[in-house]
Amino acid sequence: MYSHYVNAGETNPDQYYKNKNIKVTGSVAAVAYGKAPNSCWVTLKTDQGNGANIVCYFGTNVIKGSFTVEIGSHIEITGICMGLTDGRIIFINSLTDDILLEPYDQNIEA
């Protein structure tokens, strides 16, 4: 997918991916643990050597506090592709069976 965005040629990658529910697999490059909606995400490595990534935001779900995501682990995430922004492909409302998620609870202290 990332290669298609950076080497689009005659086709517009947005017509294939943008605003669609897409499943991606990859190695975890980074994780952000947050306590509020859209404050936690997982970044997956791409096959490009330039540090480009796919950033998957979990929307109103957050990573369960006791769960640890290992850098380098291989996971599968499904989310809505928002296209390429600042060299990264952005997914929103992402879900995965490989990470324990829980709904954001505004009563939990940040």
Rank of each mutant, 00 (worst) to 15 (best):
C56A: 08
I90P: 04
I54M: 01
D86W: 13
T68L: 10
C81T: 05
M82S: 08
G49E: 11
N50T: 10
E76Q: 10
D86S: 15
I90M: 11
N50F: 08
S73A: 10
G87R: 11
A52Q: 02
D47L: 07
C56L: 04
K64H: 13
I77P: 00
T60H: 14
I80R: 12
T60R: 15
I80V: 15
F67H: 14
Y57N: 01
E70N: 07
I90S: 06
K64D: 13
Q48P: 01
S94L: 08
F67P: 07
V62E: 03
I77G: 04
F67K: 14
N53G: 12
T68G: 02
T85S: 14
I75C: 04
G51A: 05
T46W: 04
G87W: 06
E76T: 10
D47I: 08
G72M: 05
G83N: 08
G65S: 15
I63K: 00
H74E: 14
N53V: 03
I80A: 15
T85K: 14
N50G: 05
G49W: 12
Y57P: 02
I90N: 08
R88F: 08
H74Q: 15
I63E: 04
I71V: 13
Y57K: 01
T78S: 11
L84D: 02
T60Q: 14
L84G: 01
C81D: 12
V55C: 07
M82E: 08
N61L: 09
T46M: 06
F91A: 03
N53A: 09
S73C: 12
M82G: 02
G51C: 07
Q48N: 12
N53M: 10
H74Y: 14
G65L: 13
G83K: 05
T46Y: 06
T46F: 06
R88M: 12
T85Y: 11
N61K: 08
R88A: 12
M82W: 08
V62S: 00
A52W: 00
R88V: 07
G59L: 02
N61P: 05
D86E: 14
I77D: 02
I63D: 01
I92W: 06
T60L: 13
T46H: 04
T78I: 06
T85A: 13
T46D: 06
V69R: 00
V62C: 09
Q48Y: 12
E76Y: 05
V69Q: 03
Q48I: 10
T60N: 15
R88S: 13
H74A: 13
G49A: 15
I90A: 08
C81H: 04
D47W: 07
G65F: 15
S66K: 15
S73M: 06
K64V: 11
T78V: 11
L84T: 01
G72L: 01
G72R: 03
T78W: 06
G51P: 04
V55K: 11
L84R: 04
G49L: 11
I77N: 01
G79S: 12
S66C: 15
C56D: 01
